[in-house]
Design a binder for these strands. Structure first.
Lengths: 146, 146
DNA sequence: GTAATTCCTCAAGTTCACTTTAGATCAAGC
DNA sequence: GCTTGATCTAAAGTGAACTTGAGGAATTAC
């Protein structure tokens, strides 16, 4: 814990992230450490906040690219303001609501299907959804029904 | 649509899957086509069911490996029985319920956090969850909080 | 009967979110 | 001052779920 800021190891200890993950996040613009004389990364407390937020957002199912996009609007070298967080977290709340609603629709359909064993391509409500499920996260997740 | 069964193209047309995806699923044991004299794959109607079910299960967030594991208990060359589907779909329903509950908890926490702007590693309820979120799907999705 | 279409296999490429490895340098404790 | 541990870069590997491409053979349509 050098006097000129937090080391990457400090951040790893305090966030639970792997050191390699923090470096990886840097390449995606989520943190912007400065370098000390020896070329080592030095972080500020605002970087803890930024990482925390990124971790939470991932937990909520956001892809890193989306998180980075949101955080690009925040000042890089200071803690984001209360209104910054409010704006982002409000957007996330909407996303969660949407995902809950979709899962509930799916559950209700499944209730209708359990025991019927039809799974007909022509008639099964599960197979022929009237809606689409929002992307559930990163990866090559392709969607049905549209 | 050869007389001795459905071609892979037929299946693609009727499921909406890409031909390459169907072949890929075969390597994962989801379908088990027979071959005709020329070495081309021939499928039965039960394979339509199996693919349908795999697609639905994916939509519900199950990884292919898990789907394959479940379907491994089903007879390979005939349509699964009603009780087979019931067993699997009931298990899925539980999974959906769990995911809904987790998202709701998360939403409630976020409600408490919107506007507070704290995101403190020590005190933020969002960052220090008392529970874990079930795997949201395939990929290198690591979880916080445990 | 031939052209167009579909299918075959096998290997390699893609995206996301990282981790691992290698070889080298920097910082800290005693 | 030296050793141990942390950090550095760059490249390659991982795993899920596929797609794309090459080169060739089977099937279908006319």
């Amino acid at each position: 814990m050098a006097k000129d800021g937090l080391t990457i190891g400090d951040l790893a200890d305090r966030t639970g992230l792997a050191v390699s993950a923090i470096r990886f996040y840097e390449t995606h613009g989520i943190v912007h450490p400065v370098r000390n004389a020896g070329g080592h990364r030095r972080y500020g407390r605002h970087d803890l906040r930024r990482l925390s937020f990124a971790m939470i957002a991932q937990r909520l199912g956001f892809a890193l690219s989306e998180i980075a996009r949101q955080m690009a609007h925040l000042p890089a070298h200071k803690a984001p303001s209360k209104s910054d967080w409010t704006r982002i977290s409000t957007a996330m709340r909407g996303d969660i609501e949407t995902r809950i609603a979709e899962l509930e629709r799916l559950r209700d359909r499944l209730d209708g299907c359990i025991g019927c064993g039809c799974l007909s391509l022509e008639t099964c409500a599960l197979y022929n959804p009237g809606d689409t499920l929002a992307a559930r996260g990163p990866g090559p997740v392709k969607l049905l029904g549209d």
